[in-house]
Write a protein that binds this DNA or RNA. Sequence first.
DNA 1: TTGCGATAGTTAGAAGGTGTAACTTCACTC
DNA 2: GAGTGAAGTTACACCTTCTAACTATCGCAA
Lengths: 215, 215
Amino acid sequence: MDVKTSRERYRAQVRAEIKRYAWEQLGTTGVSALSLNAIAKHVGMSGPALYRYFPSRDDLITELVRDAYRSLADVVRAAAGSGGVAEVAYAIREWALADPQRYLFVYGTPIPGYRAPGDTTEISNEIMADLLRVHAAAPGDGRVTALDGHVEGHREWAGGVPASSAVLRRAVTFWTRVHGVLSLELAGHFAGMGFDPAVLFAAELDDLSTEDGSR
Amino acid sequence: MDVKTSRERYRAQVRAEIKRYAWEQLGTTGVSALSLNAIAKHVGMSGPALYRYFPSRDDLITELVRDAYRSLADVVRAAAGSGGVAEVAYAIREWALADPQRYLFVYGTPIPGYRAPGDTTEISNEIMADLLRVHAAAPGDGRVTALDGHVEGHREWAGGVPASSAVLRRAVTFWTRVHGVLSLELAGHFAGMGFDPAVLFAAELDDLSTEDGSR
DNA sequence: TTGCGATAGTTAGAAGGTGTAACTTCACTC
DNA sequence: GAGTGAAGTTACACCTTCTAACTATCGCAA
């Protein structure tokens, strides 16, 4: 039953409100400026009351990271269900651009003392699984590279997804290249260089699908 | 003349000592945990005395960022002078692995309220220039992609370096791919996946040099 | 050598952060 | 209606950056 007592409903509502404003603050100021005091004041309670809802700042951050991962996993899954590699790539890009801090929150510089709980790596595996599936469905290239042999020997991260070593290689490469362009773009390192990161992103995507197959 | 008065020599020495310990702290705890108080205590002075040497925490960070950029620029320049694209790539990788926080410090999630001063983008341009030079010297591929035309129209970031549009494209792609693998590796996102990031890095490097030229 | 001025350091304290302890108030249940 | 537990309060400890005011010291110059 997910029918709740009114106390529980209220509690869930306040927790959601806290997280909602936490995201707002995160989007504008970044994680290091996330202040429980400021959130509490905004939600209408004073300081320590917030600790009834989240045991510590790290616990709040953990929950936000989990939500971000979950959101990305859902986006990837939806895109993988209805489209191919390119659709997944653009879905990820749109998700990242919609809230740059959220992307950097998950894939950026790790938070100093913070250790990701087990279930976030579980969600991360979920994303990798969808990446593998969508690459397995795409036309493969005929290549066998040194990387193929290496990942073949370390495929435990693929979980139960059936995937050739070439698919493993292509999925990982997809990930690193998409992240390479996206993270530099979101961190502002292309600013002032003039060109449009979208074109660069499209070019990488084009290379991913044609570099080996079209020879 | 760079002969200094004894006061100036002392001052430079204390500043260096402060920065030295700041790097130490940065390497272990990351930037957000960088504490002026802790540094001051370690250097043997108490709290506010440190403000005689750095006007604010941000100013110290700015100087550290500048040093990091400078260090990377020197490494890239040296590698570009004596080697080719691969040598530069491995030089960058070694520089990053030697102090992961230092790499993430410059290319990771931007620090919230912090804005990079003009001369860091100058050093950044210096690095890009060396990247362009080493790619111009490398055998080109015969390709003309959509990205070529686009960067050709926005080549102001290339400064005075003579480079064909294909070289511009290849240099930017080099950058994003190297960063893609490195940043995920340094942030620990490959941890638990089993494979060796070095092999992935080598594979990307191999693709960069052969994907188009060897068809 | 004596004395002055700039510099380096000190302590005190404001403003704001996380987090704990103790207390009150309120709502729901028996 | 009484009691119990959750929710919120204030007060406080301890940390942070950073300013203000004061002292001591160092170097130079008359």
